[in-house]
Amino acid sequence: MKQLIPKPLSLRDLTPARVSLTRTGVSLRTPEILDFSLCHAQARDAVYATLAIPSLLEALHQRQLETILVHSAAPDRPTYIRRPDLGRALAPESLERLQPAAGPIPRLTIILADGLSALATNRHAIELLDALLPKLQQFSLTPIVLAEQARVALGDPIGAALQPHLTLMLIGERPGLTSPDSLGAYITWNPIRNPRPNITDADRNCISNIRTEGLDYATAANRIAFLCREAQTRGLSGTALKEAADTAFPSNPESAVPAITS
């Protein structure tokens, strides 16, 4: 193999990919191996992290927000990993806890869920809500739902039970090697469908990659609020709404990243 050619421009300046790694023989040098191992370790720990329920509850109550705790039908993380179907269903005792909401319309249910990285929810959900709630004053909030062992579609039985007009799920995305704490936001209009269940991923809108090195809270809040308002105006969410959002925010390619949380 030939020597690297001296380059005035560093490849690392052009991409977050792991280019220009140092080697010994054909193999990677020790610091490169250890860096990779650390990133993988952080991603693995994020997958097995749990929602910080006490501190999330405290933060929500400080903001005068009511809360309900629910659990999916997946009893633990290994089952959750193997059985995505259980992560999309409510545990029976959780279902009993959810009563149809009253109050002015349109009503919005916000769900904070662990998904595949509770780390993301623990780190970003409260600060994102602080940026977002002032923009959503046209909606009346049902209690905030904290959901453990949850997949994105757990929002549908939650919506069916609480009967809001819109659900917004903030959920930890599958960790990448350099993004263990990436939060996703999923918006679903009219989660009470008749006949149920007939909601698919094409009926949702997703804002992805909300984290310190990715989409910042203010930008994410703007995009989420836009989608919530448009969903209400048009009476729909999903593919049709995505086109409108892409026109309104053409410079935000994050929304096009495929959903990896469902």
Binding site: T15, P16, A17, R18, V19, L21, R23, V26, S27, L28, E32, F36, C39, H40, R174, P175, G176, L177, T178, S179, V257, I260
Partner: peptide, 16 residues
């Protein structure tokens, strides 16, 4: 690059 696909978020094999 480095076995880390930064778009698809998974690990494959590297050039090395």
């Amino acid at each position: 690059p480095g076995a880390d696909d930064i778009m698809l978020h998974y690990q494959s094999t590297s050039f090395h």
